[in-house]
């Protein structure tokens, strides 16, 4: 497993894909901070519930503000990162050496989880710094212990993102092709992100909406105490999603024929 992770590290460090992902997640907070400053300059009052990040303290919510962008960036990265192994045939190099398919799957999942973590740390840290510079650090209303709140919020948001990352990894291993994986991952993101809300319109199935991590990510206000109280639900749904998608992905991959 460690050998596979070392190989993944070499591939990732030399890859342009890593640079692109980190560039997107680095530039985004700078542009948004400048944009918010300009809006304030033009006389618009920033409202936390609508604008999500309005100062350095609410910068911890950068993942919520950029949820869709982070997900689409990761879905594109994972589609190529895993799909290309199948398409270039390089997956054979590791598997034909007798490496376990479970270890191979988990090493990929671990690497993209790590990249997602680094990416959201960069996004959040730069968001907090940039917003603090242009709009001041300020505070998150109704939050007394900011340090504890920030840690809980960051980890919960990361887990929600990670659940989707795990789904994208599963899709990539099932489809074995970058382009097809991209299409299905995109459809999943859009479908569960915006389609799951349809269940809210029904009486009997409205709870189904919150079986999907994206419903939390897109429709919750992580600065509101009511939604902060739902963190445990969010963590539970995320864990179940990660475990289930990994089990399905591994089972399918173990039976797959490698061309």
């Amino acid at each position: 497993m460690l050998n596979l992770l070392t190989a993944e590290r070499i591939k990732l460090i030399r890859s342009k894909k890593l640079l692109i992902v980190l560039s997107i997640l680095s530039i985004l907070p700078i542009i948004q901070a400048v944009n918010s400053k300009m809006m304030v300059g033009y006389g618009t009052e920033l409202i936390q519930a609508k604008d999500t990040v309005i100062n350095g303290a609410t910068g911890i919510l950068m993942m919520e503000k950029n949820g869709l962008t982070v997900l689409l960036t990761m879905c594109a990265f994972i589609g190529f990162f895993i799909g290309e192994e199948f398409q270039n045939g390089t997956i054979r190099n590791a598997l034909s050496l007798g490496r376990s398919r479970i270890h191979y799957y988990l090493s990929k999942l671990l690497m993209v989880s790590l990249l997602a973590f680094v990416g959201v740390v960069v996004l959040t840290a730069l968001g907090m710094i940039c917003f603090s510079i242009v709009l001041g650090f300020g505070e998150v209303s109704e939050i007394n212990n900011y340090g504890w709140y920030a840690l809980k919020t960051f980890m919960t948001l990361y887990l929600l993102i990670l659940a989707n990352v795990s789904i994208y990894v599963m899709i990539s291993f099932i489809t074995k092709n970058s382009a097809i994986s991209l299409v299905w991952s995109f459809l999943y993101t859009i479908g569960t992100g915006f389609g799951a809300g349809i269940f809210l319109e029904t009486e009997h199935f409205k709870h189904v909406t919150f079986w999907f991590t994206e419903s939390f990510l897109f429709y919750s206000d992580f600065a509101s105490p009511i939604d902060v109280a739902k963190y445990s639900d969010m963590i539970l749904v995320s864990f179940i999603t990660i475990v289930l998608s990994s089990i399905i992905g591994i089972l399918v991959f173990k039976r797959a024929d490698i061309k």
């Binding site: 270039n88 390089t90 997956i91």
Partner: peptide, 12 residues
């Protein structure tokens, strides 16, 4: 093994 096309990382 080298089965069919050479399996290499094109960017490396």
């Amino acid at each position: 093994q080298s089965i069919e096309t050479p399996a290499l990382y094109p960017e490396l």
